[in-house]
């Protein structure tokens, strides 16, 4: 198989768009003039907090073929920006987060934090896994404290931070509980507190709310938005749910299906706080979804083809 994707996946997009030039940005109309959240300086900043410089990733399948998973992805994320990445399942969006977190090396390209390339994991970027990966042998407080211990913080400072971040996610009462004693939404909040406690500049979130019921998810959206505005972290949030992306993000990046490329970017200028059911959120989601539909179809076709081949 050729390493060039253009032979196998003819792209309808002009080259400029794939190399990360912000073309064809969709601006959602603000629904009202009331802006409760302070407007952030988003795109004027010179050094981006996170920059992906033509990231590609390919790997060998069990049959020996080389499969291109991510193709020449370039992205820039401003400090304090809330970026959402959406794409059909199998587009490599989770893998992209692993690369940024330094848990896996890319085949080519660079991940830059504040302009400096990263190699390996670092506590300046914390990833919240889809499966959370909370430690069952530690209490809630122990989980939140873990990263602080690894940073060799003295005990008093650790205790103070643990208390602060547990308060932030409303879990102070449960600090001595074990993980299996908590509900799904509470576990999510522990994972969030554990990630926040190390005070990373960048928070990477991999479909964190996918397994939750709608009510819990809405509640956690509100909390995440509040925490984001209180702490000013840069967030890169991966989801397959377009509405969730529009609900949360300053900007939504759409990835193509296998190999993952940046198909299009959408700036979301809707005032905060937003809600999933808001008409303008729905309208913006509709625009993005129309664009995503092709990719979803492609992913479904690939799945059916796999089934036929079997």
């Amino acid at each position: 198989m050729s390493t060039s994707p253009h032979n196998t996946f003819p792209s309808p997009l002009p080259v400029a768009r794939r190399t990360g030039v912000r073309a064809n940005v969709f601006h959602g109309k603000p629904a009202s003039s009331v802006t409760e959240f302070p407007k952030r300086p988003m795109f004027e900043v010179v050094v981006p907090k996170v920059a992906l410089d033509s990231i590609s990733l390919s790997y060998k399948t069990t049959s020996g073929e080389r499969l291109l998973a991510l193709d020449n992805i370039s992205l820039e994320v401003a400090p304090g920006e809330f970026l959402c990445i959406v794409g059909p399942s199998g587009c490599g969006k989770s893998t992209l987060l692993h690369l940024i977190a330094g848990l896996q090396p890319q085949t080519s390209g660079k991940v830059l934090i504040d302009g400096a390339p990263v190699s390996g994991p670092g506590t300046d970027r914390i990833l919240i896994f889809q499966e959370l990966g909370l430690f069952p042998w530690l209490t809630v407080a122990g989980n939140v404290e873990f990263g602080l211990k690894m940073k060799n913080l003295p005990k008093a400072a650790r205790k103070e931070k643990v208390e602060y971040y547990l308060r932030l996610v409303h879990l102070s009462k449960f600090k001595d509980s074990y993980i299996h004693q908590l509900s799904g939404g509470m576990r999510q909040r522990v994972a969030l507190a554990r990630a926040l406690a190390t005070e990373p500049d960048v928070l990477l979130m991999d479909e964190p709310f996918a397994a939750l019921d709608a009510q819990t998810r809405d509640l956690l959206h509100d909390e995440l938005e509040r925490i984001w505005s209180e702490t000013g972290r840069t967030i890169i949030f991966v989801t397959h749910n377009v509405r969730e992306a529009v609900r949360l993000g300053d900007r939504v990046v759409l990835l193509t299906f296998r190999p993952g490329r940046v198909k299009q970017e959408f700036a979301v200028d809707l005032p905060r706080p937003r809600h999933m059911e808001q008409p303008d959120v729905a309208r913006t989601s509709g625009e993005i979804l129309a664009c995503l539909r092709d990719e979803i179809n492609k992913s479904l076709e690939a799945e059916y083809a796999d089934e036929k081949a079997r």
């Binding site: 848990l103 914390i126 990833l127 990966g133 430690f135 042998w137």
Partner: peptide, 27 residues
């Protein structure tokens, strides 16, 4: 595998990764 990844992600490596993540996780 997630525990080892989460541990590395939170800044654990080498002996500390073993002692505070791998060992309790495999207990």
């Amino acid at each position: 595998k997630i525990y080892a990844m989460a541990g590395r992600n939170l800044g654990a490596s080498g002996f500390r990764l073993f002692w505070s993540v791998l060992l309790p996780a495999s207990l």
